[in-house]
């Protein structure tokens, strides 16, 4: 894999990843395109610029860790892993099919390079904090990045973890909320309002940043800022657009958990050039 700090290069990778996400979910005929597309720039910046990791040595003890706590966005993570060279790219279209390593939600039994098996919402930040504490005890420079959904943070365990992270001064972890404003049943504000999100993390003692999650230089700056913050964990509230990049999926709750039809896949690929 080739890493880059160049925003245009990261944008080009993001475009490729978006096409793969649409294709693989279309092929699977089920899955969660909206929340995969909203997270692309953040994951691209992490995997191709910021994180210290080595696809040739996935068990490297000092690697940085990424946990997709919103496990239903598995396709965006699978595309990253394949693009980096952890997993075969030519099998991406086996997503959700019998025998595939690309399970419906991330499953370490099938892909050891995954840091955690997720899919039950609310658990990932706690697991990441445990990893961060282990790294600190080991004197390792490893940093942990956990992506949470905005609907996911309605789970109480997230706030247990938030209290824990600040109390234990876990400054080697970053929680990133993919704030795309939509969950399965509709708009977050109509299901269980989470606003004001940044204020909540600040109140829990986290160094908190609020950014446009599709603005790659902004993502880079936020992650650098997080690395410089000492004595407390960082939360990045990343404002994003659900279904970003495909006009008929953007801000459309239908595409939280519905696969595009073959015609919709073609229309989407037309736009993702």
């Amino acid at each position: 894999m080739t890493s880059t700090h160049n925003a245009a290069g990261l944008a080009a990778i993001s475009m490729r990843i978006r096409r793969e996400i649409v294709e693989m979910i279309g092929e699977a005929k089920s899955g969660h395109p909206g929340g995969s597309l909203s997270a692309v720039e953040i994951l691209t910046t992490l995997f191709f610029d910021v994180m210290r990791h080595d696809p040739n040595n996935p068990a490297w003890p000092e690697r940085d860790r990424f946990i997709l706590s919103k496990g239903h966005a598995a396709p965006v993570l699978y595309c990253m892993l394949a693009q980096c060279g952890y997993t075969p790219k030519d099998q991406l279209n086996t997503l959700r099919k019998l025998g595939s390593i690309y399970q419906g939600h991330p499953d370490r039994r099938f892909i050891p390079a995954l840091e955690a098996s997720t899919g039950s919402l609310g658990v990932g930040l706690s697991v990441g904090l445990g990893m961060a504490l282990a790294a600190r005890l080991n004197g390792s420079p490893a940093r942990v990045y956990v992506m949470l959904g905005d609907g996911e943070i309605q789970e109480g365990q997230v706030w247990e973890a938030a209290m824990f992270g600040a109390y234990h001064k876990a400054d080697n972890i970053v929680a990133i909320v993919d704030y795309n404003k939509i969950q399965l049943d509709g708009f977050v504000k109509d299901i269980m309002e989470v606003h004001p999100l940044a204020d909540k993390w600040r109140a829990f003692g986290w160094h908190t940043l609020e950014i446009d999650g599709h603005d790659i230089p902004a993502v880079q700056r936020a992650l650098a800022d997080a690395a410089a913050a000492k004595g407390r964990p960082t939360a990045i509230v990343a404002h994003t657009i659900k279904g970003k990049g495909v006009s008929f999926m953007e801000n459309n709750p239908k595409f939280h958990g519905t696969a595009p039809s073959p015609a919709e896949v073609q229309a989407a690929l037309q736009e993702l050039q």
């Binding site: 003890p61 840091e115 955690a116 658990v123 706690s126 697991v127 990441g128 904090l129 445990g130 990893m131 961060a132 504490l133 282990a134 790294a135 005890l137 080991n138 109480g156 365990q157 247990e160 973890a161 209290m163 824990f164 109390y167 234990h168």
Partner: peptide, 27 residues
């Protein structure tokens, strides 16, 4: 230094333990 007070939050505590185990510890 090897004892982690989790407060009255058992759900979080179990997953913290899982992360510590993933990091090579025996929690």
């Amino acid at each position: 230094e090897r004892f982690f007070s989790c407060g009255i939050a058992e759900a979080n505590m179990i997953s913290i333990g899982a992360g510590l185990a993933a990091g090579g510890k025996i929690p």
